[in-house]
Amino acid sequence: MSDAPETVGVSSYVGSPIIMATVRVVMPFVFTFGLFVMFHGADSSGGGFQGGVIVGTVVLMLGIAFGIGATRDWIGPRLPVALVGIGVLAFLFTGFGSVLLGAGFLEYSVYHDLGIPHATKYGIEFVELAIGVIVAGIVTGLFFSIAAGVGGERE
């Protein structure tokens, strides 16, 4: 890598005003759509997995428009991995929490005892959100890891 300075890599990032302006305009809508798919998966098509990927795509768009290295520095190396861990733990706690309240594993209706209305529905929504956080974290983490080191880029 180091003996090929002419490598057309990600490090040879050239800012394009067209792509930057497009991403700036489109990004809020894509992000909102991703959150909508994630939160609305219970009542329409979609769910945590699809919404998480769409939210992760926002970071990919930012990376392509403003430079992957700059985006990674902005987000930080730990946040995607932390999100993945938080998502899995949230899912597990939802499961074991219902056991602690005296019901079966992931039996959401028992959360009604804690004063949550429509406990099953919101339990499903919460789990979908956890899945979305996992998937979004994995997508961004993979994107940064695969992009790192292209064209001799080092941290």
Binding site: G41, D43, I124, E128
Partner: peptide, 15 residues
């Protein structure tokens, strides 16, 4: 009735 979720796919997957 059991999950209060309109998307049956989500109900099967998550509940």
């Amino acid at each position: 009735e059991e999950t209060h979720v309109e998307n049956v796919v989500t109900a099967v997957l998550a509940a």
